[in-house]
Design a binder for these strands. Structure first.
Length: 468
DNA sequence: CTTGATGATTATCA
DNA sequence: TGATAATCATCAAG
């Protein structure tokens, strides 16, 4: 036994220590002092480093000669097989002691988070980012804000860095593993190294590298969290819509008061409209979800306090009416002035119970509309209704009319028509639909008469037909 | 600083 | 899944 130990020691002195495969990455104590884990091992490494630093050509030659001598020793094969046996046994005992590392819960957490954030996993992040970028390039996609795409871009950046680093680590790990394996294979000619040992060594290397990877994952997670807090949570930071945007939304709301539930297309249309007007000023766009939020808030707040919104309602009702009237008037003029071949000639609003003659006067149209506006929803009490009527025919009507004409004064005929067309549905609903707020304060769920809100409502539903 | 307005979020429901 | 109701958080005026 002592002989074996001596031989082993001498072998170890020449090359990598034979124990090294058992003791982890750190090399073993060459002099038998058992450094348990921390300081002892460090000291060992220091010793070895010192030895390496003091290696000279002469000592190398000596070692080689020694090695050669041992290899040529006549007892070598027999001793080698004994060594192998011993190693096998110790290897088994060590294997029993070394537990298979369970999946690190923290690593799992990190992995899950990275997966959830779209940093790791399939190329979902970059793909959607590309999609967002494409949508932005197309010209203001429906549901992407600048901030969102910005966030996406940053996330993609993090993702890219993460993947490059990960790949780098992986590559380094593989290279190192191959290197160590080659080294061990090389050494297996001079000392007994079982495949299991190599496997274990590889495992150790992988663990080391995975701990480095964990650091990478951790810092990636941190980066994502910071990004989140800076971008997504900033969504909560409220910015008021511009005056024009609010105006547009209000116009739609009050002209569709009987059924203020814009369809998806209508929302998109509104978002676009608001975005266009806003982009001339502040430069932020309004998304469909923001339009949805706005309508959700508006509906609930209107319903809660109709009285408070009455003036606003009247104003916008009047404004829409004036706009529509202008449109109609313009169309009428158009039809009279232009040749009958003009597409817009003889503009008529179509509805089974609403046939408006093109020659009808603007005043009667207005009064019709106003009387209709208060009837478009069932007000909780008659007093409100009366007030509504009063204000419509009274002071606020004047103001509204002024507002309306100011708005439409600079408008071209085309704009007026588009306005009317855009809200023609609402006007019809506004004027003649008996549906609206019920006594309980809820809007009737269904726009019962198909004429009130056609399913394909929107700017496209233009009925400027001469024949009917 | 207070307060009302308002955009966004969340829980709940049909 | 979309609507509602409640609530949060911020803006903006006074």
């Amino acid at each position: 036994m002592e002989d074996q130990a001596r031989i082993m020691q001498s072998l170890g002195g020449v090359t990598l220590a034979a124990h090294s495969v058992q003791g982890g990455m750190a090399l073993p104590p060459p002099h038998g002092h058992e450094g348990t884990d921390g300081d002892g091992r460090k000291q060992d490494i220091g010793d070895i480093l010192h030895q390496i630093m003091t290696i000279t050509d002469q000592s190398l030659d000596e070692a080689q000669a020694k090695k050669h001598g041992l290899n040529c020793h006549r007892m070598k094969p027999a001793l080698f097989s004994v060594l192998c046996e011993i190693k096998e046994k110790t290897g088994l005992s060590i294997r029993g002691a070394q537990e298979d590392d369970p999946p690190d819960p923290q690593l799992m957490r990190l992995d899950n988070m990275l997966l959830a954030e779209g940093v790791s996993g399939p190329e979902k992040g970059s793909a959607s980012a590309a999609a967002a970028a494409a949508a932005a390039a197309v010209g203001g996609g429906a549901d992407n804000s600048i901030e969102h795409s910005d966030y996406r871009a940053k996330l993609t950046q993090i993702r890219q860095i993460y993947h490059t680093e990960l790949e780098k680590y992986e590559q380094a790990c593989n290279e190192f593993t191959t290197h160590v394996m080659n080294l061990l294979r090389e050494q297996s000619r001079t000392r007994p190294i079982s495949p299991k040992e190599i496997e274990r060594m590889v495992g150790i290397i992988h663990r080391k590298f995975s701990s480095i990877q964990m650091q990478l994952k951790q810092s990636t997670c941190e980066a994502v969290m910071i990004l989140r807090s800076r971008f997504l949570d900033a969504r909560r930071k409220r910015r008021n819509f511009s005056k024009q945007a609010t105006e547009i939304l209000n116009e739609y709301f009050y002209s569709h008061l009987s059924n203020p539930y814009p369809s998806e297309e209508a929302k998109e249309e509104l978002a676009k409209k608001c975005g266009i007007t806003v982009s001339q000023g502040v430069g932020s766009t309004i998304t469909v979800s923001q339009v949805s939020n706005w309508f959700g808030n508006k509906r609930i707040r209107y319903k809660k306090n109709i009285g408070k919104f009455q003036e606003e309602a009247n104003l916008y009702a009047a404004k829409t009416a004036v706009n529509a009237a202008h449109a109609v008037a313009a169309a009428v003029q158009n039809s009279q002035a232009n040749s009958p071949t003009t597409p817009n000639s003889g503009f008529q609003m179509k509805d089974e119970d609403f046939q408006m003659d093109a020659t009808e006067s603007k005043n009667s149209l207005l009064s019709n509309m106003f009387s209709g506006s208060s009837g478009s929803f069932n007000l909780p009490n008659a007093g409100d209704m009366f007030m509504s009527m009063q204000s419509l025919n009274g002071a606020s009507y004047q103001g509204a009319q002024v507002g309306g004409s100011v708005q439409s004064q600079g408008d071209t005929i085309r704009h007026a028509i588009s306005q009317a067309v855009g809200y023609s549905d609402g006007l019809r609903g506004h004027l003649y639909s008996p549906h609206g707020l019920n006594v309980n304060g809820g809007w009737h769920d269904a726009p019962t008469p198909s004429s009130v809100t056609s399913p394909t409502e929107g700017a496209g539903s233009v009925h400027s037909d001469t024949s009917n």
